[in-house]
């Protein structure tokens, strides 16, 4: 079973929820797909036991073979190629690695070479296998890193927890594509509710079973809760706004290991999700 944890807005508690579920799930795999700022390992701690580079193929021009026909420049939908002073220049960070320029070149002057855009770090915490996607700062597209993470659990029998990037863009879509269930984490703010609507729309488009965790609930007006009630979205859990919970997080501790009440909450949450996925 694969559970994706996502939220429109950053900072709502995705990693808090995902790491605590993983910690009580027994044998499990935690995929940190928040590649711009992976931080699951701050809670599921362990030394890096394996590191794998993630590369993208980039066009390399043989300037002796190139006759300057510019077919590649005109073909590139991303404008990653330019012809300057009768020489093709490749803008690597703009390139989407489609390989089209290589196919279209009549002179066979284009080959592909790998360029590293990030890595996958593997750690073990108790029964959790943690795989974190790390995009190299300055890179613009990291979907390949997420694809590799998702591919790595294709035939996984144990529970998989996917900590998604914030937002609702391509990287989030890639992260939830294979998920059996989506947990949306929302905070009680107008901004939080606005972005909750966006991811809610996204999981509906992907036709994923889903439920919501209202995090940091302080009992006052909660626009995210109102959105759930208005749209009959199941509320899986309401986590109270408590000083000690933020202290656990600031100390890099797992709430389920510190507080029996939260441990019980997360266990019944996981049982509930399991029932929904495998009735």
């Amino acid at each position: 079973m694969k559970i994706a944890v996502l939220s429109g807005k950053g900072g709502t508690g995705k990693t808090f929820v995902a790491s605590n579920i993983a910690a009580i799930a027994g044998k499990s795999v935690y995929l940190d797909c928040d590649i711009e700022e992976p931080n699951g390992h701050l809670f599921l701690k362990g030394p890096v036991i394996k590191e794998t580079d993630v590369n993208l193929p980039m066009p390399k021009i043989d300037h002796d073979l190139c006759d300057g026909c510019r077919k590649c420049v005109d073909f590139c939908a991303f404008n990653a190629l330019a012809m300057i002073s009768e020489k093709i220049t490749v803008f690597e960070k703009i390139c989407h690695s489609c390989g089209g320029c290589k196919i279209i070149c009549p002179q066979k002057a284009i080959t592909e070479v790998d360029r590293k855009i990030g890595k996958i770090e593997e750690r073990i915490y108790k029964e959790v296998e943690l795989r974190s996607g790390v995009m190299t700062p300055g890179e613009q597209s990291g979907t390949k890193i997420i694809d590799m993470l998702i591919d790595s659990v294709k035939d996984e029998q144990n529970t998989v927890i996917i900590d998604c990037p914030p937002g609702s863009a391509c990287t989030v879509m890639d992260s939830i594509e294979d998920a059996d269930y989506c947990i949306l984490v929302a905070e009680p703010t107008t901004f939080g509710a606005h972005n909750l609507k966006m991811v809610h729309k996204l999981v509906q488009i992907f036709d994923k079973p889903h439920g919501i965790i209202l995090n940091k609930s302080d009992g006052s007006h909660n626009p995210s809760k109102q959105y759930c009630l208005d749209n009959s979205i199941p509320i899986l859990l309401e986590i109270p706004w408590r000083r000690d919970i933020s202290d656990f997080i600031a100390d890099g501790k797992l709430a389920v290991e510190m507080d029996p009440e939260l441990n019980k909450m997360f266990k019944s949450l996981l049982d509930h999700v399991k029932e929904e996925v495998q009735p």
Binding site: V73, C76, A82
Partner: peptide, 10 residues
């Protein structure tokens, strides 16, 4: 969508 500056400069 992207790379407008490159194409424009070209």
């Amino acid at each position: 969508q992207g790379g407008a500056g490159i194409k424009a400069a070209q």
